[in-house]
Computed example of a mutant assay.
Amino acid sequence: MQIGSITLAGRLALAPMAGVTDLAFRQICREHGAALTVTEMVSTKALCYQDKKTPRLLALGEDEHPAAAQVFGHEPETMAEGAKIARAVSGCDIIDINMGCPAPKIVNNGDGSALMRDPALAARVIEAVVKAVDVPVTVKFRKGWDEKSVNCVEFARMAEAAGAAAITIHGRTRAQQYSGKADWDAIRAVKQAVSIPVFANGDVAEPADVVRILEYTGADAVMIGRGALGDPWIFERANALIETGVCPPLPPFAERIGTAVRQIELAAAQKGEYIAMLEARRHVNCYLKYERGLKTFKTRICALERLEQLYGIAEELKQTVGG
């Protein structure tokens, strides 16, 4: 599929998730079939103020193309300047604008899904970013602010008119956060309303969900978020299901826990062992989500401090679970 001048080799993308989709996790997901990866969201204001930590979130892997850098903010001029910096720092192929994040600390500043309450301002933001960068611009947003103000169809049309090359629609309102059920009917309505590519997002937890959401909504592609946590194989398994109608099984547990260890090793090389081990407490436990009876191991993982500890736990897990 095409996003402006950029060609994607598949229909599945890894959704940006703050504190989750770092370079290490994105690399693992690409190796397992994600056709597009997106950085964690970065503040354009922080980029413009030359914050030293923010550019690190934009680092892409050597072979991480095509990839998008996701930015957030609500001031058109700052968004334009920050997007230019993000493009220069990362070498990304696409700039994605976050207009869907529901976190209070984001929306209380007028960013993320708060922009769905002011489509006119959102349009000016998109237009400013499109004029500022030399790559396609995409927009990620939600069904609406709440059930009383569902405006995703109008918002999608606005984004297209403002110059967006593609959009991603999450089928929940801001009020829902990540609870309840994603509204695939809303996604289908958005797809029918615009001519640019549409990524469907929400309630995609297994390969069969990928096929169902594509068929039900008519979307061009799927952006997978939480479903990929601890399961990067969801991409290659869903790709196979789309292409052949047959979904391969998950790999043996030993391979899965080995991949978890490799992900944390990559993270440690990129950001240091201390930070990587703090983040490993969540990531490694996600790799155990299909197993039962491992409460003691999960507790130990939540106390990880060194790679050496992770190696020991991984070997014990292989012997306990087997396969």
Score class of each variant (00 low, 15 high):
Tyr216Met: 04
Leu229Phe: 10
Ile234His: 04
Asp209Gln: 03
Val222Gly: 05
Leu229Glu: 14
Asp220Ser: 13
Tyr216Glu: 15
Arg212Leu: 03
Glu215Ile: 02
Arg237Trp: 04
Asp209Ser: 09
Ile224Gly: 07
Pro249Trp: 13
Leu250Phe: 07
Asp209Cys: 00
Pro252Met: 01
Pro251Asp: 09
Glu215Pro: 00
Ala228Met: 08
Asp220Lys: 06
Glu215Val: 03
Ala240Leu: 10
Asp231Val: 00
Gly218Asn: 06
Phe235Gly: 10
Thr244Gln: 11
Arg212Ala: 15
Ile242Met: 15
Val211Pro: 01
Pro232Leu: 04
Leu229Ile: 13
Ile224Pro: 06
Ala221Asn: 06
Ala238Lys: 11
Leu229Gly: 08
Ile224Thr: 10
Ala219Val: 12
Gly227Thr: 08
Pro232Gly: 01
Ala238Glu: 09
Phe235Asn: 12
Leu229Asn: 12
Pro252Arg: 09
Asp209Phe: 00
Ile224Arg: 05
Thr217Phe: 12
Ala238Leu: 06
Gly225Ile: 08
Ala238Ile: 10
Pro232Ala: 05
Leu241Cys: 08
Ile234Trp: 08
Met223Ala: 10
Ile213Arg: 06
Arg212Trp: 05
Asp209Gly: 04
Leu241Lys: 03
Pro251Tyr: 03
Glu236Cys: 14
Thr244Ile: 10
Met223Asp: 07
Ile213Gly: 05
Asn239Val: 01
Asn239Glu: 14
Val222Met: 09
Glu215Trp: 01
Arg226Gly: 01
Arg212Val: 01
Gly218Lys: 10
Val246His: 12
Gly225Met: 08
Pro232Asp: 00
Ala221Ile: 03
Leu250Arg: 14
Gly225Ser: 13
Met223Lys: 02
Phe235Ala: 12
